Amino acid sequence: KICQAAENEYTGARCGLLDQFSSLFGSENGLVYSDFRALTAAPVSIGPGACFIVADTHVKHSLVASEYNERRARCEEAAAAFGRLLDHPVKALRDVSLAEWTRHSPCLDPVAARRALHVVGENARVFQALDLLGRGDLGAFGRLMYESHESSIRNFENSCPELDFIVETARALPQALGARLSGGGFGGSAVILAAPENARAVGAAVAEGFLRRYGRPCDIRVIRPSACAALAP
């Protein structure tokens, strides 16, 4: 919370706790299921049969200047509207279901409704992902990553052409299981899911296509989830 306050108050970016939770609660070969209301985290195994390729576009983004705060304000506007429309408390968009969004979104400002759909949809995809990873279905989990990125393009509008190109290049590769932008978007990196034995080939294909399209390289790194930050003995 201290780190979040530093970003909120000193840089002006109204961001959450994702980076801090990832650093504190990461696990070997696992993702982190984070509940930012309860301030709890739990490891979710992806097993040894998966790794990630991080493709850095080198598109610089400032979360303050890139309308991140505007996106958050629209989501808060939508949450307040749902609070007036629904018969149960709505403190945030996590309290709104997809069915409720579908029923009541015509009553909202169209832009706020789209921003809300991204958040409500992402929350639903998290619970789908927990079920799929629990059953070891990496293919279906990867398809959720593509759905997430598509929502970023259409609903949250926090992607950029370079990120979209990387995701679409990955989608065309049979060895790539899924891809989406990473973090707040508006630039930065995309993350691609693949089996470890296919990761270098996928990364090379993405890098080659990016260089051909933009005339400059993107950095490719193959990574595996690791344990959380800790003091060295």
Rank of each mutant, 00 (worst) to 15 (best):
K1F: 14
I2H: 06
I2K: 06
C3E: 09
Q4I: 13
A5T: 14
E9G: 05
E9I: 15
G12R: 00
G16R: 03
G16H: 11
G26M: 08
R37A: 13
L39G: 08
C51F: 12
D56S: 12
D56L: 05
T57D: 09
T57I: 12
T57C: 06
T57F: 04
L63S: 02
V64M: 06
E70P: 08
A73N: 11
D87I: 15
P89E: 04
P89Q: 11
K91P: 04
A92T: 13
L93R: 10
E100K: 14
E100W: 13
T102D: 11
P106E: 04
L108D: 00
V111D: 06
A113G: 06
R125D: 08
F127D: 01
D131R: 12
G136R: 00
D137F: 12
E150L: 07
R154P: 01
R154V: 13
N155T: 07
F156K: 14
N158V: 15
N158H: 02
P161T: 14
L163F: 15
E168K: 14
R171C: 10
R171N: 01
A172H: 09
L173Y: 05
S182M: 08
G185C: 07
G188A: 05
N198H: 14
G209H: 07
L211Q: 02
I220N: 06
R221E: 12
V222L: 10
